[in-house]
């Protein structure tokens, strides 16, 4: 299973994402520059955190129009796994690959802390290695993680099991229904604000993020065999 990590001008978590794949899964991960227009050689894509295009206009709004995003949309269409972390989540929203939009945190502060989350649906390709309802700890670091969608969309997300993670206890940004991460209808595109790639070793304060990557590998091997 080969991973691509697209790098936009202003991305800053790309190396961490690639290292997480290499260290947790022992699988190859390539950094791919945003001008690349094909991701055919890859089985999964991780859109990293950071400040693509300096967050100009709106977070993720400009990255969405870079050539690599057409390839990401194509990969998602083919059913490949696409994971967007933090700014990557914001890009997926702007690209319309996930429903809703991101707003500034309700308290207006940039929040950098380890957050408690609840696994809301463990039957997804990204969450199968967690227990249903499990409480996990992942770090967050964002100023705009205040997820918004209208009531009808929220109802659909709830009904279809598209909410992957919710903040447990304190909601650090004011997001609708405490949402921390959602998937698309098909379940192959996940966007989340917390950083699983920053929680893969005990010395990082938590290694609960490792199982998100393991779930992806397990899903892929279940589909295509161990290659």
């Amino acid at each position: 299973m080969r991973f691509a990590v697209p790098v936009f001008p202003g991305s800053n978590c790309d190396q961490d994402c690639a290292k997480a794949v290499r260290e947790v899964l022992e699988r190859p991960a390539d950094l791919v520059w945003y001008t690349e227009d094909s991701l055919d050689n890859y089985d999964a894509i991780i859109l990293p955190g950071g400040f693509s295009y300096g967050d100009y206009l709106r977070t993720g709004a400009l990255a969405r129009f870079s050539p690599v995003m057409e390839a990401v949309a194509e990969a998602a269409e083919k059913g490949k796994l696409v994971l967007g972390i933090c700014n990557g989540f914001q890009v997926l929203l702007e690209a319309g690959l996930l429903p809703g939009a991101m707003r500034v945190n309700d308290h207006l502060q940039f929040r950098c802390s380890i957050q408690t989350l609840q696994v809301e649906n463990n039957s997804l390709p990204f969450t199968a290695c967690y227990k249903q309802g499990e409480i996990i700890r992942l770090p967050i670091a964002h100023g705009e993680g205040n997820y918004y969608c209208d009531d009808q969309t929220l109802q659909e997300l709830e009904d279809r099991g598209q909410i992957a993670f919710r903040y447990h206890g304190e909601n650090p940004n004011g997001s609708v229904a405490g949402i921390a991460g959602i998937v698309n209808r098909r379940g192959n595109v996940l966007g989340l604000m917390p950083h699983p790639e920053r929680a893969i070793h005990d010395w990082m304060g938590s290694r609960d993020g490792a199982r998100l990557f393991r779930s992806m590998l397990q899903y892929w091997e279940g589909m295509y065999g161990a290659a």
């Binding site: 206009l57 809703g100 707003r103 209208d150």
Partner: peptide
Amino acid sequence: KLLANPVI
């Protein structure tokens, strides 16, 4: 298409 996000 770009300057405003119609969702919000």
